[in-house]
Design a protein around this nucleic acid. Structure first.
Lengths: 214, 214
DNA sequence: TGATGATGCGAACCTGTGTTCAATTCAACC
DNA sequence: GGTTGAATTGAACACAGGTTCGCATCATCA
């Protein structure tokens, strides 16, 4: 059976995935070699092929499992659209802050997937986007949201939220709860139904040239 | 002097940059070879080195010129913060829709820059971000914007706006003016000072559990 | 103790990489 | 018309890429 010294079947598999994840996120799929990954886990390159059929499968598995997790982790709660949106936003931020490398890869390495794998990943992503879009559509229908185009609003919100991974650093100025709250605040307002045009405007909000077609 | 047939000194340079731009955007810097670029413009790989010292310089020049353009193209207009924000947002969307490949590269290929080049590009990006942040800070100080954290709001807005390049396709469902208007609408609302909490709420906006710390 | 089989090594294969450079081409100039 | 020199070729270099495979290792089980 498996060796317990000099071999590490039970740990090498997960360690391979972890090393690939870290290196792909840091340097990009195309820029990372199988030999680098192998070195990272203290093994020769050939040994990796006991755990993955090839490099492409390594990338695909990371992305697919990530998206499957993301979808499995969250279901829209019962309730009104604003509550659902809040749940979505907070979960999205929390999930993304927990897995910065996975998220980064899933958004950056799409073009390194072979067409068949790309189709699978794209389908999963659309599924996720559809959940947000459904919330926005329902809220718009009820008049609690004011979104002129639900598809555009969906993409805009997801981009805004996902962007948190580009600047967040562990131990930075803002803690995670604060970040979550701030993003929710912006997301909420961005799709909120306008309050009845306040002729009684807040004091500082004096007239200005909005000069546009909104 | 320069040959006019069989050689193309005046056009090969620009064509090299254009081909590199397109291929880098499509497949990623690391995945594109100098031979592929050369083939794209009908030349042997060796000839490229008459126009660029190396592959890295090709990428760096594209990113640096892009950001320099972006900075040169827009200055905050005189006026109130909301007018400045609208100008920024509309310019950002317009600029990004005009140059999808450049924008894509500038956001995706940062990690393929050698440290010195990375520092230069990062500095230019911070300069651009600082312009938006200044607008938000000024608006917040005047009370016309309600942003709890200007830095976070800056990053959130830029991510939201830049995301347009991930889904926009020429000739798609929405024309550019509409897209611009919709993004401006969302951006404006996301940082807007709350209207005085309307006890006279819009009809459809019935009570709900917001259940959070906002 | 000897056979087994999972685990890993190390070298090799073939292809492709960025880059260099001597040789060639050929419009422009004297 | 011969010379010049920029533009380009095409071959070469040194190395790194993903992947394969025969062989070695060694805990386990009979």
């Amino acid at each position: 059976m498996a060796r317990t010294q000099g071999s590490h079947a039970e740990t090498t598999g997960p360690r391979l995935r972890a090393a690939a994840l870290r290196l792909f996120a840091r340097h990009g799929y195309a820029a990372v070699s199988m030999r680098q990954i192998a070195a990272e886990i203290g093994v020769q390159a050939g040994a990796l092929y006991l755990y993955t059929p090839d490099k492409q499968a390594l990338l695909f598995a990371l992305m697919r499992d990530h998206l499957a997790d993301l979808l499995a982790d969250w279901q829209p709660p019962d309730g009104d659209p604003e509550g659902q949106l809040e749940s979505f936003v907070r979960h999205h931020i929390r999930y993304h802050l927990d897995r910065p490398d996975l998220v980064f890869i899933a958004y950056m390495e799409l073009r390194n997937l072979v067409p068949e794998n790309f189709a699978t990943i794209a389908r999963l992503r659309r599924e996720y986007e559809a959940r947000l879009e459904a919330i926005l559509a329902r809220g718009a229908a009820q008049g609690v949201f004011d979104v002129a185009d639900t598809r555009l609003a969906t993409m805009a919100l997801i981009a805004m939220l996902t962007g948190v991974t580009t600047w967040y650093r562990e131990g930075g100025r803002l803690d995670r709860a604060t970040i979550e709250a701030r993003y929710w605040e912006m997301a909420r307002k961005s799709v909120a139904a306008s309050a009845p045009q306040p002729d009684i405007a807040p004091l500082a909000k004096i007239g200005h040239a909005s000069g546009g077609d909104i």
